[in-house]
Each structure stands twice: as structure tokens, then as C-alpha cells.
Amino acid sequence: MGWFSAFYGSSIGKKTVVAVTGLAMIGFLVGHMLGNLQVFAGRGPTPEETKLNEYAELLRMEMGLLWAMRLGLLTALVLHVVTVIKLRGENRRARPQNYAVQRYQSANAFSRFMMWGGIALLAYVVYHILHLTMGVAHPDLFEPHHVYDNVIHSFQKPLIAGVYVLATVALYFHLYHGVVSAFQTLGVSHPRHLQNVRVLGHALAVVIVVGFVSVPVGVLLRVVS
């Protein structure tokens, strides 16, 4: 593993790790989002025949696999966050003194709020797990294995739905710059490809965000209940 620590020790190596783990998490998000959309299949005759619950049970069929996935995700997340913190530290050290006046010309909301977006998302993920996985955030709204009910009951509370919507906004910013950067980091450089990557970044961000936001909004607007 000597080569890996040398690679990870370099700036480009760390950026590659961030890019790869980021893309892995995006892959997870797509799956998660498709799963979430099952909520629009509505309530079944019994909780067991409710699509969303079926999907949740499906995940639990093979606990080993689920935990492997969870572990993989956790590793990606930890690597992503730890590496970003390291990079951030290096970047701060490289600029010990700020300019009295600096006018940005190209850096934009997307690139400049990566860090804040990331922190917001991290906080949200913790809340989300406490809320819908472990059920400790709002015990009154949680009943094990009744995913559908849990979702509906929670999102009927505007405050909780609001938190989820806000999180998806943060996600949008984070995703767009993340996707474009990941490809730049991984070496996509042809201007035409780069243009495609930008379109892809926006498209992916929009699809994922719309997919996610549709659930709390749908519940709030009583499209499903």
C-alpha cells in the first residue's frame, strides 16, 4: 500500500479520492431516489403490500448485503469528508493571509459553497438517519417497518418537510459543482466533453433533486396520503 499512501499524500491523489467517493455516493443517491419514488404508488391494502414498504423489506432480505452496502457507503462518506477536511486545511495554509480586496470573476455560488453545502448535507444525513432509519428524532412519528406511514406522517408536518426541501437545495449546489469537478479531476478535458459534463452535472443534479424533493412536497400537497 506504499503507492497508495504516496498517491493519497499528493494533492491530485486526494482530489481523485474525493471525486471517486463522490461519484459512488451519487450512484447510491440515484438508487435511493428511485426507491423513494415508490411512495407515489400509494398505500396498499395492507402495510405489507404497500410498494414502499415492499422495497424497504427487499433491502432487509439479505442483512449481510445491506450491511456491506452500508459499510461501503460509510467508508465512502468518511473518506470523502476526511479528505476534504485535509484538502481544506492545505488550502488554508497556502493562503495564510487574505486580500483586503479580492474580486472573484469565475468562482461562483456553486464552487464557493461546496464546503457549506457539504456541512449542511452532513448534518442533514445524520438527522435523516435518526429520523427515518433509527426513529429516534421524532419517536412519536415512527413505527418500525411502517416506512410508508412514517414518511407520510412526518412530511405532513411542514417543518420536517421544509428541512428535507432545504437539504435538497443544498444537494443541488453540491452535486452540480461536484459532478463537474469530479470529471475535471478524473481528466475529462476535451471542450466538447467538458460541455457535456456541465450539462450532465446540471441534469443529474436536477433529476436527483426533483426526485427527492417530490416526496415531501407531494405529501405536503396531499398528492399521496
Binding site: 494533492s11 488550502n91 472573484y104 464552487s111
Partner: peptide
């Protein structure tokens, strides 16, 4: 040398 890392701001 202690330079920072690219985060694709494009400045």
C-alpha cells in the same frame, strides 16, 4: 512547496 489544491473555481 505548499501550494493549495484545485477545487475548480476557475479564477
Amino acid at each position: 512547496e505548499g501550494f493549495g489544491n484545485c477545487t475548480n473555481h476557475g479564477e
